[in-house]
């Protein structure tokens, strides 16, 4: 648990304000309706496959992440994660570093926000890291916990939190503490699994995070998962081809980009990248043809296509 003290004066003003708001009957927090039961998900569900790690002082971030990583198949423990996510000056772990650390271990970091998404992910068997404010908005006590289940008829949520495994707390209380972080939730998944609430753009964006940390093998797996779900996704095709290219697997890259030219015969970027790959493989004439095609199709990136064409032309004329 982390306590970050605001300036005393501000706190005082906020105190007066909150007293006023309380007296005037405005709680300021809109409560979401948690369903008593749900059409699409079971009434109660608790994951038994999530190992519990008790946290040390202020270090709920590393503990929560270790539990999620372990569950996803990455051997881990809070101690080794401390240097990766813990910021000593703030006595806590920032959300962005939690996301970055998941990616560095080749895992998809996918954001889960709000009760509906939380229940959907849980019933799909995915534990969710949540950020709670156990204090008040003006006197925050930020805390990371791992939600592992729920029981709708009993109106409780089950979490691995602090030093308590399988802690049950009332839905209403949980929501009050979660709402103060704007329902910040994080899914840490192996790239072979799709989040239950996945949308194409959000999922691809999560894989882009893997690309940024040069986790190309994980990115390949992620894009393959995306293509299974969205076989027509242009982004997944290009991403998969580019990831193979980054791994210097030009043969697979060629196959993917060729496939993509059939799916997207009017997309210049696909032909541009195919040209690069073909040229890398020494298929200079075919490369030239693909580069021409990209230039002919044009579009917002036309100047790059032009550059590709010129480079291949220069090279071809040099080796003649």
């Amino acid at each position: 648990m982390h306590f970050i003290f605001g300036k005393l004066r501000n706190a005082f003003i906020l105190l007066l304000l909150s007293i006023y708001l309380t007296l005037s009957g405005c709680s300021g927090v809109l409560l979401h309706n948690w369903p008593q039961s749900h059409e699409y998900i079971p009434d109660r569900y608790v994951l038994n496959s999530v190992l519990f790690y008790p946290q040390k002082a202020y270090q709920c971030g590393p503990a929560a992440l270790a539990m999620a990583l372990e569950w996803s198949g990455v051997p881990s423990n809070p101690e080794v994660l401390v240097p990766e996510v813990f910021t000593p000056s703030r006595k806590g772990s920032l959300q962005s570093t939690m996301i970055a650390a998941s990616r560095r271990h080749g895992r998809i970091a996918y954001s889960v926000s709000g009760p509906d998404a939380l229940l959907a992910e849980l019933s799909a068997g995915h534990p969710v890291i949540v950020l709670q404010n156990l204090g008040l908005s003006w006197f925050p006590a930020w805390h990371y916990a791992v939600v592992i289940g729920y029981d709708l008829p009993k109106a409780v949520i089950v979490l691995h939190s602090g030093i308590t495994p399988r802690k049950q707390i009332p839905l209403r209380l949980f929501e009050n503490t979660w709402a103060r972080s704007n329902y910040w939730g994080l899914l840490v998944l192996p790239p072979s699994q799709l989040p239950a609430t996945a949308t194409e753009r959000e999922y691809i964006s999560a894989i882009l995070g893997l690309e940024k940390t040069s986790q190309w093998k994980a990115a390949v797996e992620g894009y393959e998962t995306a293509l299974k779900r969205w076989p027509d996704s242009l982004l997944a095709h290009i991403g998969l081809g580019n990831s193979y290219y980054a791994l210097s697997d030009f043969e697979s890259a060629e196959k993917i980009f060729r496939d993509a030219t059939c799916h997207y015969p009017t997309e210049g970027s696909v032909f541009n990248n195919l040209a690069q790959v073909l040229w890398k493989r020494g298929k200079n004439q075919e490369a030239l043809k693909a580069a021409y095609k990209a230039v002919k199709l044009g579009g917002p990136l036309a100047n790059i296509y032009q550059k590709t064409l010129e480079e291949i032309q220069t090279w071809n004329s040099m080796i003649k």
């Binding site: 882009l208 970027s269 990136l301």
Partner: peptide, 22 residues
């Protein structure tokens, strides 16, 4: 300069397409 010309691969990265698409 001569040798390194082809080394500058002009691959269009996924993030660029993502932005365009958005």
């Amino acid at each position: 300069t001569i040798i390194s010309v082809p080394a500058h691969a002009v691959m269009i990265n996924t993030a660029e397409i993502f932005k365009q698409n958005q």
